[in-house]
Write a protein that binds this DNA or RNA. Structure first.
Length: 420
RNA sequence: GUGGGUGUAGCUCAGUCGGUAGAGCACUGGAUUGUGGCUCCAGUUGUCGAGGGUUCGAUCCCCUUCACUCACCCCA
């Protein structure tokens, strides 16, 4: 039995990796337009970092983290998300002393021990962005606009931006109380899960998909009605700024977050085309997090996108692997030796060049050139070698011309069309 | 953690009412000596996921197990 990979941890193979590269390149490009710089942080952190930021009682911390002890008996955890490590790095490196505003983005693997299913894996990848140091609603609108811009840039149109506000430590307890009181009378009609949620996380009940629960919570109090003055004004201004710049959105007052650190604005980019994993990107404001982690009392806002989910949506419009500019088809020892050296020189000149390494028949070599979708083939047989003339075949048109081997390098390099 | 589905050639799958198995694609070779894509011909490949049971005999029936997958939970 050969050794297999770990459940829920996937290889990204040629053919799909091109899509990933595209998604990453576009993120660098778009985020750069908005003034963001990349930050790279380790995949492993002290377990405590996630316990304190994500929240002790969240599912992530309670049962989904890859936690282990190293040889010094420190409790370490494979990062289940990116915001906490970035905040830790921000605080530790005192980035606020360099610039009162930090705009950072990151991309890389995250780890959560869950049962894998479509669009959900144990090692998954996120591209995320964070802004630290701006409280104003303009930055909320800016971050959301950048997110929408990114989706446009990568050509994913089947998505909707939903926003909500979860309030702040001032007003959220009041809402929670009002909601709990409302649900108390209807406990009997709720599903089993929701009766549990009633105790653990009542906000989740209003997000339940079970028809009975949807019905039971029709008249439930809305977060938005319980926001304090400051939070209401902030949320109103976020919407106003989004309209000013023409970023489409809808309000979903029943949207909940799985991490404890969110305050005020929260949002999701949702789609109907991914089965039950309908969120392709999600995020929100976290005004208390940095202080809670021992840093300066600075506000923050950010989001993360699931790369596997983006790739699934992009999937059909697969980005083609680069085709060779030239295939060298050589026949016989001398020609093969010549072709091998020529190939090397052409590659150094920037020409994507391939050849057959095993002395196959011309037919087989052309078949391979065709399979690789090579644009042109230079045929070098014994005749060609003795006459110092190669046959240059343009595959698409099946036309062939004789070209002198003297100066062939310059000729081929000059005539090369730029690759995709 | 819970529930459903699937496991047969490299890939996608068919099949045997129980007698050790096939198709398409792919790959290799050939159809005028050195010319791809279309067509035709030929050829290679499987411990029929693993272990056990019933049986004269199981890939097909029963049990167990593993893997993959989808959904719930939760989430990007």
């Amino acid at each position: 039995m050969s050794i297999t990979g770990i459940k829920g941890m996937n290889d990204i193979l040629p053919g799909e990796v091109e899509t990933w590269q595209f998604l990453e390149e576009q993120a660098r490009r778009i985020f750069g337009l908005y003034g963001f710089s990349e930050i790279r942080v380790p995949v492993v952190e002290k377990t405590e970092l996630f316990q304190r930021s994500i929240g002790e009682t969240t599912d992530i911390v309670e049962k989904e983290m890859y936690t282990f002890r190293d040889k010094s008996d420190n409790s370490l955890t494979l990062r289940p998300e990116g915001t906490a490590p970035v905040m830790r790095a921000f605080i530790q490196n005192k980035l606020h002393t360099r610039d009162p505003i930090a705009k950072l983005y990151y991309m890389g693997p995250m780890f959560r021990y869950e049962r894998p299913q479509k669009g959900r894996y144990r090692q998954f990848h996120q591209i995320g962005a964070e802004v630290i140091g701006v409280e104003d609603a303009k930055i909320d609108a800016q971050v959301l606009t950048m997110l929408a811009h990114y989706f446009e840039a990568v050509g994913i149109v089947d998505v909707e931006l939903q926003i909500n506000s979860l309030g702040c430590p001032e007003c959220r307890p009041g809402y929670r109380q009002a909601l709990t009181a409302f649900l108390e009378d209807r406990l009997e009609t709720l599903c089993e899960d929701c009766r549990r949620r009633y105790r653990t996380n009542p906000l989740r009940v209003v997000d339940c998909k079970v028809p009975g629960c949807k019905e039971a919570t029709v008249g439930a109090p809305s977060v938005l009605d319980h926001l304090c003055g400051g939070c209401t004004e902030h949320f109103t201004r976020v919407q106003k700024h989004l309209r000013e710049v023409g970023t489409a959105f809808s309000i979903n007052a029943r949207m909940v977050r799985g991490l404890d650190y969110y305050t005020k604005t929260t949002f999701e980019m949702v789609t109907g085309s991914l089965g039950s994993q309908n969120a392709v990107a999600a995020g929100g404001r976290y005004d208390g997090l940095i202080k809670d982690l021992g840093g300066p009392p600075l506000p923050g806002i950010g989001f993360a996108m699931g790369v596997e989910r983006l790739a699934l949506m992009k999937g059909e419009a697969r980005i083609e692997a680069a085709r060779p500019d030239l295939f060298l088809a050589a026949l016989g020892e001398d020609a093969a030796r010549y072709a091998f050296a020529l190939m090397s020189r052409l590659q150094r000149r920037g020409l994507r060049t391939e050849m057959d390494y095993e002395g196959k028949s011309l037919k087989a070599q052309l078949r391979r050139a065709d399979k690789l979708m090579a644009k042109r083939v230079l045929i070098l047989g014994e005749d060609e070698m003795s006459r110092r003339q190669g046959q240059l075949r343009t595959m698409e048109t099946s036309s062939q011309e004789s070209v002198p081997l003297d100066g062939i390098e310059e000729f081929l390099a000059a005539a090369a069309s730029p690759g995709p």
